[in-house]
Design a binder for these strands. Structure first.
Lengths: 217, 217
DNA sequence: AATTAAAGTTAGGTATATCAAACTTTAATT
DNA sequence: AATTAAAGTTTGATATACCTAACTTTAATT
């Protein structure tokens, strides 16, 4: 049996190891992502190792073993399907879904999740533009660039967000951004890295921090 | 904050106090209903009392205070709405829903439960024939008689079950029973209290224990 | 009134998941 | 090579929710 807490650790390890350039994942980074102390993480890592869910050596890096990765992907699949359900069937907005999905993702019932998938018409992406893993654990590869990689003159369609906190989502909603919004970069201000853009025909200044969290194609 | 465990105690106290003839609810009865030891219940009762959720005196009876009853009814409302959802929208059969609903009933989101109610068309009864409390906590009064109260010659329609264990539900499903099935009592055998009946035109012998758990009108 | 059985409580212990404080290891800097 | 800062671990503690075994209270029977 994998506990709810363990599932949250595995999910966190999975996503922190997903978009990583160099350097292995460490205790502190995992702790700050989970909002708990490094001491607690150290203890839990030993337990996850004993259960053969992760690969871990004291003072070394943290990675998932096959069993742990499977569990992580299942939780992510459930999370994203529930998020899709909340938006498609329950009239939730994309900034309201994360907290509830964090609870729903731990419900144990294979039949429920299969039926949910069917009810939603086997969706491939969730409301934040993230791919939904298939039943067998396959996850569509996504090579996405962020808006801050663009140069003046480029025109994009927004395909997802890197950050799904309510604060961020509410902010970009106010800027007029949603999935598939058209964005054209007019200028880049070197002073602070902000971008002058046109979003669905309206001029908007976007900070670098925001631009880094918007996926475009 | 009311924890998941506390919600389960409150729900149990509520239902054990609902269909009660004489004698107050005690620690042992509550413990055996929750499948835990009386010692654990004794401890938890003190805690629930401190939180002003229940009325309790050592060696005395157990009952809900207003705050506790409200919480219990909310959990029951969520449980029954989720059960309805599983049957109406997710192709679950009535013997499969209880376990999953026990998990779903603890999800915290007022919006979710309101939307669920709306999605289902504001149902009044769940798939076991139990009334679903309204948002304000009002619960339809149900004066239901059980099949074992009938006498030969009586004809009934089944309106609910008193027991929602998979074993019981699977058993009566095999007998051809479902909500609104027509049942006629042909004879009662005094030896073991069993009933000879006709269910939707087919002759069936029903044990007293089964008859006691079927609500009819 | 004394005894006893049933019901209920308390005491001491376990597992999980958390923490802060103290300590150790690793790696970077001088 | 020595120092130091950052990263990570260990230790001892806490809270929740559970247990068994021992004890106490209540209520029924003799």
């Amino acid at each position: 049996m994998i506990t709810v807490t363990e599932e949250n650790y595995l999910k966190a390890i999975y996503s922190l190891n997903a978009d990583r350039d160099g350097k292995e994942l460490g205790t502190n980074e995992l702790a700050s992502h989970l909002n708990i102390s490094p001491a607690t993480v150290s203890n839990m890592l030993q337990k996850l190792k004993e259960k053969k869910l992760i690969n871990y050596k004291k003072y070394g890096g943290i990675s998932l073993l096959e069993k742990g990765e499977k569990a992580a992907i299942t939780v992510i699949r459930k999370h994203r399907l529930w998020e899709t359900f909340l938006v498609d069937k329950m009239e939730f907005t994309w900034d309201e879904i994360h907290e509830v999905a964090e609870q729903l993702e731990h419900i144990k019932s294979t039949k429920l999740i299969d039926q949910l998938d069917k009810l939603l018409g086997y969706p491939e992406y969730d409301p934040h533009g993230d791919p939904i893993p298939k039943v067998n654990g396959e996850m569509r590869e996504t090579y996405r660039t962020t808006l801050d990689q663009g140069t003046p003159g480029d025109s994009f369609s927004m395909v997802g967000v890197k950050n799904d906190s309510p604060a961020f989502l509410q902010h970009i909603t106010k800027l007029g951004l949603a999935i598939y919004s058209k964005i054209t970069i007019k200028a880049r201000y070197e002073f602070d890295g902000s971008l002058e853009t046109e979003i669905e025909g309206t001029k908007q200044i976007i900070s670098q921090k925001v631009a880094e969290n918007i996926y475009v194609n």
